[in-house]
Amino acid sequence: MSEATSDSEPRQLAAEARNRVRFEEEALELADQVYRVARRLVSSREEAEDLVQETYARAFRSWQSYTPGTNMRAWLLRILTNLNIDRGRKQQRTPDSQPLEEGDYFLYNRMEQTSGTPAEERIDQKLSQDTIVTALSAVPHDFRDVIVLVDIGDFSYADAAQILDIPVGTVMSRLHRGRRILKRELAERVGA
């Protein structure tokens, strides 16, 4: 009996070490994607780098709370968004009821007016990377978080809801509204 216990213990430890190595490898493979999302959630590059480092430090410490087979990218982003809030980013309470006059065709119509050509023609020349990034950073946090997770991070509505700890219905309404706000911000910048 005693022999069996002393024998299984090192085996268990070895299995745990292997699991940990696998976890670390998998997490590091996701680092680029985690960074891309982080970079758009905060305003500066330095802040994003700090946040990602903190996230990985915490993830490596508490790797055992991750359930293998579940979405690790969502798990990492959950840590990151919580850290971001802990660091003092105030949860903005943007009134959802504030009317937004512009509909979804607004940006197209505006661009057609200013350039006199169909807006879909050479869209990449009309909207530079810089314009898009600045316009996105002007979108209020609550809305931007959802756009960044779903449209840039490719998370499902359900994953975004879990990461941000809000209902799926709220994810959808913020996403729809957020995209309209983004288009309004873009319209202000292309017309200028």
Partner: peptide, 23 residues
């Protein structure tokens, strides 16, 4: 286009730092 505009890569330095955080 929005997705492409936000495709910013992290620096190799940060990548190395993250790897060094492994326990």
């Amino acid at each position: 286009l929005v997705k492409k505009a936000c495709n910013e890569e992290m620096s190799p330095e940060l990548k190395a730092k993250l790897a060094s955080l492994k326990e």
